[in-house]
Write a protein that binds this DNA or RNA. Sequence first.
DNA 1: ACTCACCTTTACGCGAACGTCAACGTAAAC
DNA 2: GTTTACGTTGACGTTCGCGTAAAGGTGAGT
Lengths: 168, 168
Amino acid sequence: MPTTTLTKTSFSIRDLAAEFDVTARTLRFYEQKGLLSPGRKGASRVYSIADRARLVLILRGKRVGFSLDEIGEMLDMEAITNQNPSALVDMLERFHERIDALNHQREDIDAAITELEAGRTWLEDRLAKREPSEEIKHRARAFEALAAARMNVWTGASPEPGSHDTTS
Amino acid sequence: MPTTTLTKTSFSIRDLAAEFDVTARTLRFYEQKGLLSPGRKGASRVYSIADRARLVLILRGKRVGFSLDEIGEMLDMEAITNQNPSALVDMLERFHERIDALNHQREDIDAAITELEAGRTWLEDRLAKREPSEEIKHRARAFEALAAARMNVWTGASPEPGSHDTTS
DNA sequence: ACTCACCTTTACGCGAACGTCAACGTAAAC
DNA sequence: GTTTACGTTGACGTTCGCGTAAAGGTGAGT
């Protein structure tokens, strides 16, 4: 059974804004882009639990680097359904591309974390034993050198999403 | 024992642009922002192997969601070195935040991949056995329902990197 | 009735990250 | 010499993702 259960079943624009740390403007903007379509009580927006779910997906999509338009496409499966088979094939291909891109992005993230960790320990060392500024400069260059040394590992260009790349 | 070795040791603006699939304009822009500082041969830019290394870091930083300004700060360790200890502490804290954010982002990516995989299999099923459009619509709603069902797992808001910050 | 809090739409503004001319220099190739 | 290819520096244009008023509606509390 569920790990967590939600108490509420419908939300005001402020509810969601506060919960997900976005502004009301943002939610209206998403609606205007067709990403959300909350109900109305009078003129006021009323977000269902499904709207909230979509918002979660939207925000996560954003965090992993998708544009709002891309997110819109991916979310709107019903619209896809009404397409002809060839459109479905196109969409499928784009899903594959997306998945590949995300997998690649994971590697990027891991690499970035590694580098930040290196920078962190470097900073911590710096703080622990305050060496003369001459030595400091030397270390700074050492860090640059580290970057240069990794050249061999990096291999080179980045296979961008949507290209016919032969990933090294 | 490097996995790959680079033949060239200096590069033209076109070389790098082609290799990393960016425009020359982009490289000039990065230079203008202080992220790169290639040498000159006459008026033309000459990029060293270290410049190329920086570019790799810049592009990766971009892919994982950093702004160019942020990347600039992180890359410019020498400048940091000349700061006073308190500035170093600040920087260290920001490194920690960044690392946390990246770890969180990994989870997001994994979740996004899971969802895209779900969408993929759904699409593939759609293509395999072409059911009547009535059934199709039903399935479409099933996918939406799947999203709704996950609500319980999602728990809610995303813990953002600067916990209690008032980002107006 | 009046304030207050919260909602609405419309619309212009903005910073980031470039794109896209325009106008020009330069160096090798024909 | 002149065409071709590539380089340069401005400088303005564009897209995205909202921010920020401006002007007003709606219901609850006093």
